[in-house]
Write a protein that binds this DNA or RNA. Structure first.
Lengths: 199, 199
DNA sequence: TATAATTGCAAGCAATTACTCACTTTTATA
DNA sequence: TATAAAAGTGAGTAATTGCTTGCAATTATA
């Protein structure tokens, strides 16, 4: 034994997300993590100072993965509406493979207990909506999207829809195909944002 | 002492929601509830068999309050779009006074631990979207709303937007006026749902 | 007023769990 | 190969916390 720390850290993060997905955050004890990784429980604390630090690292890990996954659409060159459509699709596909995310996102650990964790999430959400807002302004500048809607507000609402969708997915125990919701979701967003194509 | 049980039950529910709003669900211990009500901790168990039963009762209490509050808009007589607008406004106003709600809704207690609590929430969500879906179909029948959008899907997405909004409100520590978000939210929903008024 | 049910409490149990400590083994490096 | 740092462990601790129990006070009712 005695793996390099970075590797073990990632194993611990992966175990945390796996366990959160299947058992819920509360049952992700340091013992459960250790068992899942195959190390002793005190060893977990060799790699993370506290249990909360593990959750923060897990959220950050997903956040980075998300941005890596969506970067192409944020800064692509095609028309803004098509890129937004693809963004929504890619995002739901990504999240549908990360069931641990809603479990962490909707945990009460997040919602008052751990300021650090909350800050990490706030940062991700702010970064995300800024990018979407920029895309909407591009769409407006290109005459593709309604001038009447405020870009920032609309970006927040698009984000809110996705969050609400993910929340329903989690509350209903992942019992529908999240990625498949991309099309009706885009139908709604397009109806709201895009200017009517005159016949 | 020795109040009638129904009164004490309500006091316990109110205390639970108060504490959840200010401290987060995890810190709502039976001891904290007892202190807040002004009774001894074991006395709590005279009125609720388990701690979870308290949360279920609290969620149900809010659910009933919500439907009581929105019933008029669900079954009103005016045009569907105006009623939906008012519904959104009333709903956000109602929720903005119930900060304990998102704390419970986004607690990990809900998200795998307590099937009863989850069922209670699923029931409320289903009932809500059914009503909204019906309103949208009325709007479509009256020629006010786009035929191209599926009423059920749209109802879920409207609900998702509100949930996402409430979630942001909670993550950002209630630091913006939730009720004031009703107008931009309606602007977006209206753009999506309503048929363009031909000039 | 006698009786039974309800509401109340102090004390404590049993289980959980994040985290520490003393110590050994492995890995890296000079 | 000698040495130090890193990674690992078994055993244990301290704190929390949902819930039980035995008993007293209150309330309702006959």
């Amino acid at each position: 034994m005695g793996k390099p720390s970075e590797q073990r850290k990632q194993e611990i993060i992966d175990a945390t997300l796996d366990l959160a997905a299947s058992l819920g955050v509360k049952k992700v004890t340091t013992q459960a993590i250790a068992d899942h990784v195959g190390i002793a429980q005190p060893t977990v604390f060799r790699h993370f100072k506290t249990r909360d630090a593990i959750f923060v690292a897990a959220i950050s890990s997903i956040g980075e993965g998300l941005f890596r996954n969506l970067a192409a659409f944020f800064s692509g060159t095609g028309p803004a509406d098509e890129r937004l459509h693809q963004l929504v699709r890619a995002q739901l596909r990504f999240i549908s493979q990360k069931r641990g995310l809603p479990r962490l996102l909707f945990s009460d650990r997040l919602h008052l207990e751990s300021p650090l964790l909350k800050q990490a999430v706030q940062k991700i959400m702010n970064g995300y909506t800024q990018q979407v807002s920029r895309m909407i302004r591009e769409g407006q500048a290109a005459g593709l999207m309604r001038q009447s809607l405020d870009a920032d507000e609309s970006a927040w609402l698009v984000a809110a829809m996705i969050q609400g969708l993910v929340m329903r997915w989690s509350i209903f125990d992942f019992d529908f195909d999240l990625a498949a919701e991309a099309e009706p979701l885009w139908g709604f967003i397009a109806a709201a944002l895009l200017v009517e194509k005159g016949g």
